[in-house]
C-alpha cells in the first residue's frame, strides 16, 4: 500500500470515528428523551395537576409543587432579569470599553458557569440564617441571583447588535443616552430581549441545588412566601431517591413536565431569534 493510500485510509478512519461520535451523542439524546417520555407519560394523569404531593404509599399529584415552582420562578425572574438587563445596558451603552466594564464582564462570565449549589449556600447564609427559617422568598432570591448573569449576557449581546447608526441618529436629534436606549435601542432589540428572557426562565426552571436549602420543600399546599414552599425540582429529587413506586412515578411525571417546559421555552427563543435575523437582519 503506497503512501497516498495510507493517507486516504487514515482519513477514512478518523472521519468514520467522528460520525460514530455524532451517533453516540444523538443516541444519548434519544435514550434520555425516550426514557423521559415513556416513564413520564405513564405517570401523567389529570390527578398530577389537581392533587397535592402525597405521603409515601398513597396516590396524589404535583399541584403544590407546580404552583411553588411557578411562583418562585416568576419572582426570581421579576427580581433578577431587570437587574441583569440594566447591568447589560450599562456595559453596552455607557461603559463599553472602561476598565470597570471589563472586570464586570469577566466576573459575570464566572458567575454564569459557577456551581449553583454555591449560590444556594450563599443565600442560605444571608437570608435563611437571618430569617431563622427556610422560605419561598429565599428560594426566589437564589433563582434571581442565577438569572442575573444570564440576563446580563444576553442583554449586552443583543444591544450590541443594534446598528450604531441608529444610536447616532438619535443622539444627533439631541436625545440623552437614556432616551436613545429607551426609545430606540430597546425597541430595536426587542426580540433579542424577549429571547434573553425566555432563556433565563428556561435556565432557572430546572435548577434544583439552589432550592435545596433555601425554599426547601413542603408536602402540603402553601402560599406563604415566608415559609418553605413546595417546588418541582426538589420534589423530583426527594421522590426519585425514595423506594416508593408511587413517588418514583410522580418524579418521572414531574421530570417530563420540567423538560417539556424548558424545551418549549428554548425552541421558542430560537424561533424568535431566527425570525429576527431574517427580517431585521442588517438594517443600517
Amino acid at each position: 500500500m503506497n503512501r497516498r493510500q495510507i493517507r486516504k485510509a487514515r482519513n477514512g478512519v478518523f472521519l468514520a470515528l467522528s460520525v460514530a461520535a455524532t451517533l453516540v451523542g444523538l443516541a444519548c439524546l434519544a435514550a434520555i428523551l425516550w426514557t423521559l417520555v415513556s416513564n413520564g407519560i405513564a405517570g401523567l394523569s389529570s390527578r398530577v395537576f389537581t392533587e397535592m404531593t402525597p405521603p409515601p404509599g398513597s396516590e396524589g399529584g404535583l399541584l403544590n409543587a407546580l404552583y411553588g415552582s411557578a411562583v418562585m420562578t416568576l419572582l426570581g425572574i421579576c427580581m433578577g432579569s431587570p437587574i441583569g438587563m440594566l447591568a447589560g445596558t450599562y456595559l453596552a451603552e455607557y461603559g463599553r470599553t472602561s476598565r470597570l466594564s471589563t472586570v464586570i464582564r469577566f466576573i459575570n462570565d464566572i458567575l454564569l458557569s459557577a456551581p449553583s449549589i454555591i449560590i444556594g449556600l450563599f443565600i442560605y447564609e444571608i437570608l435563611v440564617v437571618r430569617m431563622g427559617h427556610f422560605s419561598a422568598i429565599a428560594g426566589a432570591v437564589a433563582l434571581a441571583v442565577i438569572a442575573i448573569p444570564v440576563s446580563l449576557r444576553t442583554t449586552e449581546d443583543m444591544l450590541n447588535l443594534v446598528p450604531s447608526g441608529m444610536k447616532d441618529a438619535s443622539a444627533a436629534l439631541g436625545a440623552y443616552p437614556w432616551r436613545t436606549v429607551v426609545s430606540v435601542v430597546y425597541p430595536a432589540a426587542r426580540s433579542g430581549i424577549v429571547t434573553g428572557l425566555l432563556l433565563a426562565i428556561a435556565r432557572i426552571s430546572g435548577e434544583t441545588a439552589p432550592l435545596l436549602f433555601t425554599a426547601l420543600n413542603d408536602q402540603f399546599w402553601s402560599t406563604k412566601l415566608t415559609a418553605p414552599m413546595a417546588n418541582l425540582p426538589v420534589v423530583i429529587f426527594q421522590f426519585a431517591l425514595s423506594p416508593y413506586k408511587d413517588w418514583q412515578q410522580l418524579a418521572w411525571a414531574g421530570a417530563l413536565i420540567i423538560t417539556v417546559t424548558i424545551l418549549v421555552l428554548s425552541v421558542s427563543a430560537r424561533i424568535i431569534l431566527s425570525l429576527m435575523q431574517t427580517s431585521g437582519g442588517s438594517k443600517s
Binding site: L86, T89, E93, L111, I118, V145, W178, V182
Partner: peptide, 24 residues
C-alpha cells in the same frame, strides 16, 4: 437616574461575587 441605575446594577454583579466569597 437611569445612568446610576444601570451602573448600580452592574456593580451589583461584583458585589454578588464578593458576597458569595465572604459568606462562604
Amino acid at each position: 437616574v437611569f445612568r446610576s441605575a444601570t451602573l448600580a446594577a452592574a456593580i451589583l454583579v461584583l458585589l454578588i461575587l464578593g458576597g458569595v466569597a465572604l459568606s462562604l
